[in-house]
Nucleic acid binder design. Structure first.
Lengths: 199, 199, 199, 199
DNA sequence: GATGAATGAGATTTCATTCAT
DNA sequence: GATGAATGAAATCTCATTCAT
């Protein structure tokens, strides 16, 4: 990995920060935040622990930086969603785009989902929950019956589940993602109809 | 030590094991498994760390014992489910009972959900996933279209989400639980119909 | 040291806390607080670093405990002084007793004097300065001319200096201490006369 | 970098060495030598740590340079003193001039006084003690009775104390300094008389 | 005259665990 | 049924220092 024909470590200059982030995310997602020590990250990168501290002030800051870099798509999505009319089509589009965003930042979401207890203390936790709430508030109609609101949350959660739990369902991954998306779309559609009639 | 007449330290004899489990679960759920040290548990109980080791061989064993005690209802549910015919009614009843089981062991599930990364390494993780898979296989029809299978998983996941994420929806907790259950029931019902026609 | 005829470590039971304090004070006085690592203390005692943490929560706490144990004589002296009339004899007696107190806790005072910068941050610093101020306020007459007040402070400082700086004056230690005491007594006597006339 | 027109970064060229010394001394005096890291110094100067190493080979060398620059007045004083006759007037003049020298290099002396433990290892420590001994030997008469010798040391120490401990005496700083000087002068005068009669 | 990137050594602290009593 | 004393391993973090550019 990253070793060239002459055996030297190529690409080592100028991208260490990025490499730290990559390895950290990978290990955090794989083994959990607490189980992943800076020693381990450093060893994988073949640098010293102190090098990590040159690039990030604390372990927490590594994590924060991961969030900042990777939650931008969601941020953008919320922004977009806010400016659309609250129609069924918008909601469906949100679900579709959210599904994509999740797929694009799978390890981060996996990390978050599997380390909630940790993330919660990480002061970024709130920020992120806020964002999700933002999304939710776009597809949820606060006037709608409670059941329909639940259906919307369920839709989003189905997408999350799609990333992990569904993995051990049989079937082609692509098809599975489609199926998950379909279920989620159905849920918001039902929610919308339940709230506004079949329009 | 062992004072009795005034009742303060009464009830302390013979149930320490239980008390350890209670406090451990509480702290694990609240702060996460890794963040909770045996020192902390011992301090809350006003005993020494060594006392914990009289009752449990390792920290892991405390956790395992929690699972063993608390997953019996699920175990029983699966057993019951296996002996029923695979009708819609059975599936609905499974969902209903699962919902109750979750409510009855909330902290444990919360602990599991928020510490997946940890639980996974805990060798109990598999056991538990196996159980959930057992449940799933009862409400899922393996011949059914993929979308309907997803719908079933989504139903179960909706119940999970109901415990935590939905908490910050507005509304009376009782009503919320009902709404969650309704959505989950809808999902398995739709799944069933989608697989077998409207019968 | 502490090794008996059969060569085993005698007295190792029950007095580790004390031994930690002894060694710590010795090293702090000899090399300075910051230069003395817990590793070093532990090694000298032939225990592990973790053993130190069994007895003291932090490095700072070791220091605090040293102060608490060793400043009691001063405390007592102040208490005594407060209840005496503000006569010349009292002041002289204070100086005499203070001189003794200093001699009895030499390493601690040496540590304090040579590590003021550190001690200041140690939150015990204030406490100690308060005590010294307490002493000062007994021998100083706040109405007296400034010069006489200075003379009193100078008396106390002379005693301090006596412990360290004077060490490299030639002469028998006992005689030196006497000489130092005499100078200090002269100073408070002059101060008293300067303020109240030769009475 | 190197901006000039607006004056902000002006004067930054060519005097970095000086600025390092200033900030270092300030921080050393304020927080102690060990507690002050090169990172901190660099940050205050808005340069990198490496820049410090362009100007000084080690942290110790920064300190040494401070001493060299700031102890020259004392050096000169000793030289002057050596060539004077050992009369009372000379001794008084030495005390006066020493008092001034102290005032002119307050932070350095404060640093020295509060970090003796550190300074002692700094190999400059000896040098400095040597100098102070030099001074002492001028005002002390080695044939004089021990008490009178102590009085002389006490005089010098009173001047030191004047810088710090006396600070929290009430009164105008200028007057306090005068008072301190007066006490010190008294002490050498008494010492001289005690040794040679009232001449 | 300085920076960016890194290192090696070491500090304090915490943890799960053990065992004699 | 528990405690008191300790350990070994490891974690996070900091520091002075180096060196190619």
């Amino acid at each position: 990995m990253g070793v060239t024909m002459d055996g030297t470590k190529q690409q080592r200059r100028g991208n260490t920060r990025q490499r730290i982030q990559d390895v950290a995310l990978e290990l955090f997602a794989e083994q959990g935040y607490e189980k992943t020590s800076l020693r381990e990250i450093a060893e994988r990168l073949d640098v010293t622990k102190a090098a990590l501290y040159y690039h990030f002030k604390t372990k927490e800051e590594i994590t924060v930086s991961l969030f900042e870099d990777l939650t931008q798509p969601i941020e953008a999505l919320i922004e977009w969603g806010r400016q659309q009319p609250h129609t069924l089509e918008t909601k469906q589009e949100i679900v579709r785009r959210y599904s994509e965003a999740l797929a694009g930042a799978e390890p981060l979401f996996r990390f978050m989902q599997e380390n909630q207890a940790t993330v919660r203390e990480l002061r970024i936790g709130d920020t992120f929950k806020d964002r999700l709430r933002g999304l939710r508030d776009i597809i949820i109609d606060p006037e709608a019956p409670l059941v329909e609101q639940v259906r919307c949350v369920s839709a989003m959660f189905t997408l999350h589940a799609g990333m992990f739990v569904m993995q051990d369902l049989e079937g082609d991954p692509g098809k599975k993602r489609e199926a998950v998306l379909e279920v989620a779309l159905d849920l918001v559609t039902q929610a919308h109809r339940g709230a506004h009639g079949t329009e």
